[in-house]
């Protein structure tokens, strides 16, 4: 399931006095089975970019190919793309509208024509996967806490068994345990089913730990597209665009500046602990 974006340009309010260019000449290849992190300052174009990937926004110029097919061809089935490329929106709780949690999660699968039993199995499975217990299945989504709503929204997309799963800041507003739980869940879905995951995040720590490839977007342009370990060496440039490096990476960098022989490229707490112990002999 590959997705290729070729020189995508997009303007909001094109042709009006408010015209603003949100994406500038974006070219990207998303092959099968990667876990990709997408970071950038607020307003850099992350949400605009991912909405191109499932056809919700149409580029002003450039092409997108899904498995080699041009998605802007007249006979391309856009509904198919929407199903295969599942998108969990930035404020997914705004999409919850059914009277109960289970009805909300059932909406997607039912809408795409799954029979009742299959849809229910998919919905229950998805709710279980995101950690929503049976006690909440018949609750109204509006009475859930912020974090509970988020999980329900993710379950709604998971229930459609997408091949590419794109999540726009899915862990914003989750408690630390919930964040880890969702990230591990994404990793598991990615590893077990080979699903491509694209994770938009403002947490440098999270993308450092989970992403295999990190795309940095700045004012509508791709600034870096590389392994996280390489991207996070560009400390000054990242800060200039409103980003950071993970706290543990900053710590080992400061220790290395002091002359300690620690590995500056540590991306996780585990790596930092191991490297500090090794360099100091404790």
């Amino acid at each position: 399931m590959s997705l290729i974006l070729d020189k995508i340009n997009y303007y909001y309010s094109k042709g009006t006095a408010f015209e603003s260019k949100a994406l500038k000449n974006i070219s990207l290849t998303i092959p099968d089975g990667e876990f990709i992190g997408l970071i950038g300052h607020t307003g850099s174009g992350k949400s605009t970019l991912i909405q191109h990937m499932n056809g919700l926004i149409r580029a002003d110029s450039g092409s997108i190919y899904y498995n080699g097919q041009d998605i802007y061809d007249k006979d391309f089935k856009m509904t198919e793309l929407r199903r295969k490329v599942g998108l969990v929106f930035q404020y997914p709780e705004h999409q919850l509208f059914e009277a109960t949690v289970i009805k909300d999660v059932l909406f997607g699968p039912t809408n795409m024509g799954m029979d009742k039993l299959k849809a229910e199995l998919a919905a229950y499975g998805a709710l279980k996967a995101v950690g929503i217990g049976e006690d909440l299945i018949d609750a109204s989504p509006f009475e859930l806490s912020g974090g509970q709503k988020r999980r329900v929204a993710i379950a709604g997309v998971l229930a459609m068994s997408p091949e590419i799963l794109i999540l726009d800041e899915p862990t914003a507003g989750l408690d630390p345990a919930g964040r880890t739980e969702i990230l591990r869940l994404l990793k598991k879905i990615h590893e077990d089913n080979g699903i491509t995951v694209i994770l938009v995040s403002h947490s440098m720590e999270d993308v450092a730990e989970y992403a295999e490839r990190l795309i940095v977007i700045d004012d509508g342009e791709i600034k870096y597209d590389d392994e996280p370990r390489k991207v996070f060496t560009h400390i000054d440039e990242l800060r200039k665009t409103g980003l950071e490096i993970p706290e543990c990476t900053e710590l080992v960098g400061r220790l290395a500046d002091l002359g300690l022989k620690v590995d500056r490229s540590c991306l996780t707490v585990d790596e930092a602990v191991a490297s500090i112990l090794q360099s100091t002999g404790y």
Binding site: D175, P176, E205, E247, V269, L277, Y282
Partner: peptide, 22 residues
């Protein structure tokens, strides 16, 4: 962690180093 919370990364690193005698 029992309350589903965490500590800052540097706090966690220091805590684990201390357990190793650092």
């Amino acid at each position: 962690k029992e309350y589903k919370l965490d500590v800052p990364q540097v706090t966690e690193i220091a805590y684990r180093l201390r357990q190793k005698g650092f």
